[in-house]
Design a protein around this nucleic acid. Structure first.
Length: 207
DNA sequence: CCCTGATTCGC
DNA sequence: GCGAATCAGG
């Protein structure tokens, strides 16, 4: 089977995506490849992020050989202002580049990633900022002053309820938190703390 | 080489 | 619908 894009995983994808994490990064955190991430992102319709390239449409056998109205310039329509390096400006935690290395573990996590939230146990989150080697060039641009106004960044209704999974997906008792999520996030304040822990062991743990 | 995301196309 | 393969720019 390919991948079970559940509401929850999709929500996380959306969220991480919005945070400005790279597709590969999101993939690592979601235990999928970057291809999967980007592919799903496209199908979801989200994807207005700065693309490094613009691949010219190759297979474009314009059959129009008689008429002249074929010159439908597809470009020059939105060159207003491309945010060169938006990247993460005020990402919670996960944006701090985890990846200590090329995670050997790939595409092996269980299809039920639901991180068992422990309401009592305050996540033993070790904020150990792994000195990622690749960070040297992977995220040097993220050093922007996180001083952007939170203004004009509203519409991103993930849902009206926290989508943190409670219980085992598939069991009758399974449900989502349902609390009011933080603006722009799929989780409520409590679960956002758990969700944004840069704990890249999540997938290993989840199995 | 590494990274990035985009698109194609077999499944 | 999914995502590896491939492409393409930095």
């Amino acid at each position: 089977m390919a991948m079970e894009w559940t509401e929850e995983t999709i929500a996380r994808l959306r969220d991480l995506w919005q945070q400005g994490l790279s597709t590969a990064e999101i993939g690592r955190q979601l235990s999928v490849t970057k291809n999967a991430v980007v592919g799903k992102a496209h199908r979801l319709g989200l994807k207005p992020r700065p693309s490094p390239i613009r691949r010219a449409a190759k297979a474009a056998p314009a059959p129009a050989a008689t008429t002249v109205e074929t010159t439908a310039a597809p470009a020059a329509t939105e060159s207003t202002q491309a945010p060169s390096k938006p990247e993460v400006t005020a990402a919670p935690v996960a944006a701090a580049v985890p990846a200590p290395e090329k995670a050997p573990a790939k595409a092996q996590a269980a299809p039920t990633p639901a991180p068992q939230p422990k309401p009592a146990a305050a996540a033993p989150v070790s904020e150990d900022a792994a000195p990622a080697p690749r960070a040297t060039r992977a995220q040097p641009r993220a050093t922007a002053k996180a001083a952007l106004r939170p203004v004009s960044e509203p519409r991103r209704r993930s849902s009206q309820s926290c989508c943190w999974p409670l219980g085992d997906p598939g069991t009758p008792g399974f449900h989502f938190c349902g609390a009011t999520p933080l603006p722009g996030k799929p989780y409520c304040a409590e679960h956002a703390q758990l969700a944004y822990v840069k704990l890249r062991d999540r997938r290993d743990n989840v199995a």
